[in-house]
Amino acid sequence: MRVALFATCLVDQFFAQAGVATVRLLRSLGVEVDFPRGQTCCGQPAFNAGHWDEARRMARHTLAVFEGYDYVVLPSGSCGSMLKTHYPELFTGRGLEYRRAVDLAERTFELSQFIVRVLGVERLGDGLAGRRFAYHHGCHALRELGVEEEPVLLLKNAGAELVPWEADRECCGFGGVFSVKMPAVSVAMADRKLDTLPAEPAPEALVSTDAGCLLHLAGRSRRRGQALPVRHLAELLWEARNGAS
């Protein structure tokens, strides 16, 4: 099985260790991982802002970069959904390009979903025993890809406790360009997430499979003087397998 890692530009730039963790985790599960060097950004910001011509240019680039792999795995639900849900929309009515987009969509998986549904692995190890986290369900992972049970299952099976959090399925307010287009509302949404996090028992960190949500929530938390630690899901899944590093 030849798997390509699509690190995504946000993980590449801001959560580089989550990329390292993804590679080591997948290799430890017997997967041959490659990192195609031409990869950049999936184009979601352009797509969401309505600039479909530019989004198509980036999508074509990405389609070419990941040609020929059995699977494309992303430590991200949002970028994953861009490939899986929206690339086919971008090329609707465009013949062969549409078929290539659908072919890529079928090979594309968010990391935790790939581990549970494709590899059939539900237990990675017990490296998270006794640790407590809050899990944020990113919207595109949750509602576009149906990633809901997989990250929770993998974390819990490794011994982690997830705190009950009434807003765990609510949008954090990042929304890509939305975060700078409508910053006041964006931040009010982050505040709702942060204000509902249980103080007791306090989670050691806030976890998500999406770097954008984590950057936004961490940035807001620091600005409020709280400095809540955030961890990318991939790092914790590697710790689940390998023990805390």
Partner: peptide, 12 residues
């Protein structure tokens, strides 16, 4: 309204 972004020391 948010703390500035801190890139990883080296990109992936």
């Amino acid at each position: 309204l948010r703390a500035g972004l801190e890139p990883s020391p080296r990109p992936f």
